[in-house]
Design a protein around this nucleic acid. Structure first.
Lengths: 243, 243
DNA sequence: GTTTTCTTAATTGTAAACAATTAATTATCT
DNA sequence: AGATAATTAATTGTTTACAATTAAGAAAAC
């Protein structure tokens, strides 16, 4: 089963030793988690137990375990007797998620500035290199995933597993928010800002780093259309999902 | 099943309408959650599936669901093929949990000061009245629970469900930390500080309220013995749990 | 033609049986 | 006696079958 949350990685791609074979439900959990994170699975998508069971060649029990965990992460919505679907964050939730990230990542940055070493700075730069490369080659999914990985790796440097766990939850939620509310035409090319962040962190300027991170997260919100108009549409999709 | 996390209540005692009968696994989840929160279940306690199944008169399937959810809340520890037990936070985790609360509850207080109305202030006072009464009558469990409820209700006033969810997780974790590391002789009589907090919030002084909350949370940490000596003991209990 | 009701199909929820793993006990050997 | 090996018991992990619920479609009523 192996569901101690020590392994807080977002993706199963980069920088992951993964020595031990994990149980099946963890695999399914990771795959769906990653699909949501990288926006291959969009908000509202129905997740039928049997369908997933067939795809992953396991019994529904295993699928149910994975779905339950995803629902605890607030990226899958389980309705009694109505099954699971990819969560569809409301406008209010969208704002809350960004706000929560601003608070928590500010603190993380504060810690990171005092804790980070050269190797970790190098590793972060490599990660953003990879992110940039994927975005430039129009490998959209990987680009989004790696952008999330950057924030997660930053959290890990802070050494606070509790805050890291929260950020690990908020990152795929942010992906859903972006998928749902991104203004048309805005490509999420965050790598430039990520490079800036690393530079300021490397300089050891805590206050500037915190401000820059906050600006970075606010910019995500600016790229969203959270207007009243969208609140209406949101209700529509909500009904669509119910009926 | 009903596991949408909209109902963020900690206990099933006070101020809970609970109109619809929830599914069995939710009941078990709530009961164990409450037992941990109110320190009737102590860190390290083994939670055998069959035993719980018999107590609650359901199949192990339901028990397993509840345990999985509790483990996602970091208050139950599930080891593959070795079963579940009440989590035993390390000294490091203890520090992290308090730190996370300081950050998040600071923001919550900021929101609360601008949002709270007279009815909510009255309700909070009532809650602390109840807390005080229980502590004075030496109903330890209820006192602890109600102390947690105060922080949770405060979070709810902030209207930020994301931050409230985090606090809802951190409160029982704090209970475990206190149960494990409280210095002998320190009774956790937090109601006096809770009254103070309400007063300052009612006055609308955001900055003072934030500072007081931070002091309140730091005082919890001061009541703990997180010394090196305890780190050693912690390893011992860890082995005890394993073997 | 529209609404309502009944029937059927699909999907989720629960329990119980079986398999796999780990812990405890007994038996065996030095 | 002490240590090792084999056996048994206890516990967890997974699958399958069945029950309950909901969605969809067909027939009947207005």
């Amino acid at each position: 089963m192996n569901n101690n949350l020590n392994d807080l990685s977002l993706s199963n791609t980069l920088m992951r030793p993964k020595p031990e074979r994990s149980s099946h439900d963890v695999t399914i959990y990771n795959q769906i988690f990653d699909a949501i994170l990288s926006q291959r699975l969009l908000p509202g998508t129905k997740l039928t137990e049997e369908e997933l069971a067939k795809i992953f060649k396991v019994s529904r029990t295993i699928v149910r375990r994975a779905l339950l965990r995803l629902s605890q992460d607030c990226i899958v919505d389980i309705k009694p007797n109505r099954g699971a679907s990819v969560a569809c964050p409301t406008v209010k939730q969208a704002r809350e998620i960004i706000q929560a990230r601003r608070i928590i990542e500010a603190e993380i940055i504060r810690e990171v500035v005092t804790l980070i070493d050269q190797d970790q700075i190098y590793a972060l730069r490599q990660l953003v290199d990879e992110e940039k490369k994927n975005v430039e080659h129009h490998i959209r999914s990987s680009g989004i995933r790696l952008s999330g990985d950057f924030h997660l790796e930053l959290a890990k440097v802070s050494k606070n597993t509790t805050l890291t766990k929260f950020i690990r939850e908020l990152i795929p939620q942010t992906s859903l928010v972006i998928a749902r509310y991104e203004k048309p035409g805005y490509a999420t090319c965050s790598h430039a800002e990520h490079y800036e962040l690393i530079d300021i962190i490397a300089q050891g300027d805590a206050q500037s780093a915190v401000l820059l991170m906050d600006k970075h997260l606010l910019r995500i919100e600016e790229k969203l259309d959270l207007s009243e108009h969208n609140v209406q549409v949101d209700l529509k999709t909500l009904f669509c999902e119910v009926g």
